[in-house]
C-alpha cells in the first residue's frame, strides 16, 4: 500500500456513494471507504440522493440542474469527490459543465467541481499514486470495462494495475471487454428486449473467458450482467472491483443467495 501521502496535509474526500450502491449494495461503499482510508484520505459522506443522471438522460434538464446544484452544495467542502462508478463520476466530471455551460453564475463553479471529481479506482492510481493493495482473491476473474468510465474518464489500466497486486488473483481478459453490456439506465427497461440481446452477447463472452468471478466498476452494469447470468443459471460470481481490492468479499456475490447456515 502506498503511504507517500501520510506525511502531507490531510486529503479530504467526499464519497459520492451513488444511488445504486446506497440502495442495493452498501458493501461497495464500505469497500470504497476502506480503500480511500488505507491510502491516507479522510472520508466523509455528505447527505446525498443521486447525481441526476436519470433526469439528464431523459431530457429533463430542469431537474438535472436542480439535483446537480444540490450535489455541488453538499460536496462544497471537500478536496475531492470520489465515486465507485464511472457513470456517476462521468456525470459530475463531464456533464455538469455541459448542464451549466450557458449559466454565467454556475458555469465556472461546475467546471471547478468537475475538476475535483474522480472515479474511485482511477483516483487511487492516478491521483494518490497507489500501485498495489493488500488483498487476496484466489480466483480467475474477468474485468468488464464499463462504458462511461472507459470512454468518458479513461478508466482502463488502473483497475488492472491494482488487480495485478491482489494475491492469487488471475486476470482472464475476455473478448469484447470494452463493449457495452446493454444496461444504459432506463434503456434496460424501455427497450428491454434489445438490452436482453446485448447482455446475452456479453455474458457469452464472460462464460467463454473461463473466469470464476466477473468484476466491473459500475453497479448498474453489474446488476444487469449478474441478473442475466443468474437467470441463465450460470455459476459465475459477480462483484464490484472495489470489494475485491478492499479484500471485502464475505458478503454473497451480486444476485447470489446467502450461504446456507451450517
Amino acid at each position: 500500500m502506498s503511504d507517500n501521502n501520510k506525511a502531507g496535509p490531510e486529503i479530504r474526500v467526499g464519497l459520492l456513494v451513488t444511488c445504486l450502491v446506497d440502495l442495493f449494495r452498501p458493501g461497495i461503499g464500505f469497500a470504497a471507504v476502506k480503500l480511500l482510508e488505507d491510502a491516507g484520505c479522510v472520508v466523509s459522506v455528505p447527505s446525498q440522493t443521486c447525481c441526476g443522471q436519470p433526469a439528464f438522460n431523459s431530457g429533463d434538464r430542469a431537474n438535472a440542474r436542480a439535483i446537480a446544484v444540490q450535489v455541488m452544495d453538499a460536496f462544497a467542502n471537500v478536496d475531492y469527490v470520489v465515486a465507485p462508478s464511472g457513470s456517476c463520476g462521468g456525470m459530475l466530471a463531464r456533464h455538469y459543465p455541459e448542464l451549466f455551460e450557458d449559466d454565467p453564475a454556475l458555469s465556472a463553479r461546475s467546471r471547478a467541481f468537475a475538476a475535483k471529481t474522480h472515479e474511485l479506482v482511477s483516483f487511487l492510481v492516478d491521483v494518490l499514486g497507489v500501485q498495489s493493495v493488500q488483498a487476496a482473491f484466489p480466483y480467475a476473474v474477468a474485468y468488464h470495462d464499463s462504458c462511461s468510465g472507459l470512454r468518458e474518464l479513461n478508466v482502463r489500466d488502473q483497475p488492472r494495475t491494482l488487480l495485478a497486486s491482489v494475491a492469487g488473483l488471475q486476470l482472464r481478459e475476455m473478448k469484447d471487454s470494452d463493449v457495452c453490456c446493454g444496461f444504459g439506465g432506463a434503456f434496460a427497461v424501455k427497450y428491454s428486449d434489445i438490452s436482453g440481446a446485448i447482455v446475452s452477447s456479453k455474458t457469452a463472452c464472460v462464460e467463454a473467458s473461463g473466469a470464476h468471478t466477473l468484476l466491473a466498476g459500475d453497479l448498474g452494469c453489474l446488476m444487469n450482467m449478474a441478473g442475466k447470468l443468474a437467470r441463465d443459471g450460470s455459476k459465475i460470481e459477480v462483484r464490484h472491483v472495489a470489494e475485491v481490492l478492499a479484500g471485502m468479499t464475505d458478503a454473497p456475490p451480486i444476485a447470489a443467495a446467502a450461504p446456507e447456515k451450517a
Binding site: V17, F24, D193, M223, K228
Partner: peptide, 20 residues
Amino acid sequence: GWTNQRDLPAPQGQTFQAQW
C-alpha cells in the same frame, strides 16, 4: 421491464447512508 430479461439482484438490506 427488467425481470422479463434478467433477474433483479436484491438489496443487501439497510442503505449505505443508514449504515454509515
